[in-house]
Nucleic acid binder design. Structure first.
Length: 509
DNA sequence: ATTAGGG
DNA sequence: CCCTAAT
């Protein structure tokens, strides 16, 4: 592996590696930890998603209450005119579950920076403002979003949030957790303490989080369904006996989410940490979620009961009422060997067969300053393939694809010209030490593809165009080292004269 | 832990 | 990139 004991510490060939994001690999592991109460959550939340899920949960309960099973649609029963969104200043907080001491810690300060950073670069996202939103739910299951910046549309699909986050639909590169070669993964995961300098695991301890943002909801199709459902329910209520008008307002100031565990090397840059957090958030949002509910510390699992039945009335103090974000789908741990940790699951809601509507993210990459700045670096900043994140079950098994940049290829070629094609470990140390996301195996693989790329016509090549001269060097080095077999000489260098003046010291072949 | 190749 | 056999 690429041990840290290498020669160039964090910097090689004039390039700074310390800021290299090492997110992907880290996600391949996750914790087996589970909350004691059985509900396992894994992730974070953004208000929008929160609201959306709440609405859905609302619908879930609603259906039951109204005794219209068939109405267990995927959409919340909400009247458009009843939705309002007011915007305030950025405000969010994160609180350890059950801990009032830290209940004031501000998540905004911890997580908003990276979020804002990303969001601010996309003013058209409609999510430039993060504000507080209070969701009020009355006994009729109408949901109201109160805020002071009512938008014209009123309701907009929460997908906007995903859009802004850059979460996109899955594609052939989707993260999969087939855990093939679990043994190898376990090996890679556990060995090389320094190898995986950034490991992210999602644990299932909850945290209260209030991430509120001023978002707008709009989705004609969905609205239509929502309204229709609302009307049906209303009719039912009017004809029914229990047509009380008592309403209870529920102000959700925070919502619990799983704890997000991130491990970073001390010398990691703040930027990389932010990106890591951002990625974790995206991963969470990319999964299917639902809302769990608790009252006085006890889980409220029966979606068929009414608010009144469980003690939620207008006269009651609802301080003990809490909501949590939980993954919606049960996780098949049987298929998740050691390294591919299992993810949480199940909670309230999923038992009745109700699955939350899948979040369908739009494809949008958020360019941050860092990203732009990194575009010229040897190692691009978190070339996250957002398309993959969507179906990422909370657990990342396969590394995110990170195409080699021209600069990286240059470094690789240079190293191979000097060291040959049989000492990838040395190549790694020489040109990619510090770039933990590039293993010597990766470099070997890359060289293989480079040789192939250089052998085919430019028209057949894909991806970022590689300078022909670089490819020429690849072929030259390839030929050279094919002839001059690499010897296990410790300080062996490129054969003199064969690779041009790049050789440093010739120690024979 | 590395190397070398196939998938 | 992943997975493995062989070192």
């Amino acid at each position: 592996m690429m041990s840290k004991k290498s020669i160039c510490h964090g910097r090689c060939n004039g390039f700074e590696w310390s800021n290299v994001p090492k997110a992907p690999r880290s996600l391949r592991r996750s914790s087996h930890k589970r909350s004691s109460d059985g509900s396992k959550l894994c992730a974070f939340e953004l208000l929008a998603a929160v609201a959306d899920k709440l609405l859905q949960e609302s619908e879930s309960s609603t259906s039951s209450i109204s005794q219209e099973p068939k109405e267990q649609a995927a959409f919340p029963i909400v009247k458009q005119e009843e939705l309002e969104v007011k915007g305030n200043d950025v405000k969010s907080e994160i609180v350890d579950h059950g801990s009032s001491a830290e209940s004031k810690s501000n998540l905004a300060r911890k997580l908003d920076p990276p979020l804002k950073e990303s969001l601010e670069s996309d003013n058209d996202s409609g999510l430039e403002h993060v504000s507080e939103v209070t969701i009020v739910k009355n006994v009729e299951n109408n949901v109201k979003l109160e805020g002071d910046a009512p938008r014209q549309g009123g309701l907009r699909d929460v997908n906007l949030v995903n859009h802004v986050l850059g979460i996109t639909d899955d594609d052939e590169n989707s993260f999969r957790c087939d855990c093939r070669g679990a043994r190898m993964r376990a090996f890679r995961s556990r060995s090389h303490g320094g190898y995986r300098r950034v490991r992210k695991m999602l644990t299932y301890r909850y945290r209260k989080v209030t991430l509120m943002k001023d978002y707008e909801l709009t989705n004609p199709t969905k609205l239509g369904q929502i309204e229709a459902a609302s009307k049906r329910r209303k009719l039912f209520h009017q004809s029914g006996k229990e047509n009380k008008t008592d309403k209870v307002k529920i102000s959700i100031k925070s919502i619990k989410v799983p704890e997000l565990y991130i491990e970073m090397p001390e010398n990691a840059s703040i930027a990389s940490l932010k990106r890591t957090v951002m990625e974790a958030v995206r991963t969470f949002l990319g999964g299917k979620l639902h809302v769990g509910m608790s009252l006085e510390g006890k889980k409220v699992k029966d979606n068929n009961r009414t608010l009144k039945q469980i003690g939620i009335s207008m006269n009651r103090d609802l301080d003990t009422l809490g909501f949590t974000l939980e993954p919606s789908l049960p996780y098949d741990t049987s298929r998740q060997p050691s390294s591919c940790t299992a993810s949480p699951i199940v909670g309230v809601g999923s038992s009745n067969g109700l699955l939350n509507e899948e979040i369908v993210p739009l494809e949008t990459e958020v360019l941050t300053e860092e990203k732009v700045a990194a575009s010229n670096a040897l190692v691009p900043a978190v070339p996250i393939n957002y398309k993959q994140i969507n179906k990422a079950e909370v657990t990342q098994c396969r590394r995110i694809r990170r195409p080699f940049s021209v600069m990286e290829v240059e470094a690789l070629v240079e190293a191979v010209e000097t060291l040959g094609t049989g000492r990838w470990r040395q190549v790694k140390l020489r040109a990619f030490d510090g770039a933990d996301h590039r293993t010597y195996v990766d470099l070997k693989d890359k060289w293989k593809t480079l040789v192939h790329t250089a052998s085919i016509s430019p028209q057949q090549r894909r991806g970022e165009p590689m300078p022909q001269d670089l490819l020429d060097r690849v072929l030259a080095a390839h030929r050279c080292w094919s002839i001059h077999q690499v010897k296990p000489r410790k300080h062996q260098t490129a054969p003199l004269g064969i690779l041009g003046g790049s050789s440093v010291e010739f120690v024979g072949i």
